[in-house]
Amino acid sequence: MRLPRFEYLSPKTLEEATALLGTYGNQAKILAGGTDLLVDLKKRSSIQGSRRWGKKERGPCYVIGLKGVTGLTRLKYSPGETLSVGPITSYADVADSTIVKESYPLLWQACRTFSRPQIRSAGTLVGNLCNGSPSADIVPPLIALGAKARVISARAEREVPVEEFCSAPFTTVLKEDELVAELKIPQPAEPYGWSYQRTTKRTAEDEALVVVAVLLEFADRDKTVRRARIALGSVAPRPSRALESESMTQGKKLDEALIQKISETVAAETSPRSRSDYRRLMTSYLVRKALTEALGN
């Protein structure tokens, strides 16, 4: 199984990168960590791949690698405001950061438990987002944290909330000539609680079956919920928030009965494609676990 032939372009700045995207459009692909793109390209050129995707479809002619872009931010933190995550920042970069560990424990937990060590070394948060997978592990915590993606092209620049970034399975709002230059993650308001729950399809190292990320911002030390975000992955065509469940927490103190009620409600907010009954059940189970844990965290 080999990669198809392509031309490799190595821009020195993000402006150059967007210029190249502007020129080549859908014939070009941005390469960050490679853990999704290179797998996808190899599968396309494989025997079954050619069956599955039709013989004629070839991979992109141009691959634009961002590794050569100078001065790219890995992580930049403005205390009390935002964390900025660059376009080639890896999971390992985040997992190794004490600042993230202290100020964004939800993100830290998701990154350090993400996949396997080799994938964490190479894979990037932005890449995970741009791949548009419904089961992207890192997107629910980003949604729970209210992260925004700064999208640039040669023409313009815009900000897209991460929860609006994916539009359908493996489809995002990114246009052919755009790339994500940065993720901006606001600092949650203290006091808050959080939880990250994930279960796999079968084995410990498997893809996610259900991902739940919860961020509860409390009005006071009494833990009355001021604002809640419950983000789900792998249970709908795209990672999304359980809005009705969130609203049930508004202004409330979570007790066992309410958590139970929410966990029942949340199942109805999912629309899994496969193993749907089981995914719904696991969503309820994990949301219950997550809310309980977030109260303590």
């Binding site: 390469l31 797998v39 690698g65």
Partner: peptide
């Protein structure tokens, strides 16, 4: 690579 484990099947040699 620089002490971190990578899958060499998913790294372009040029990178």
């Amino acid at each position: 690579l620089d002490g971190k484990p990578f899958l060499s099947c998913l790294v372009l040699a040029v990178e």
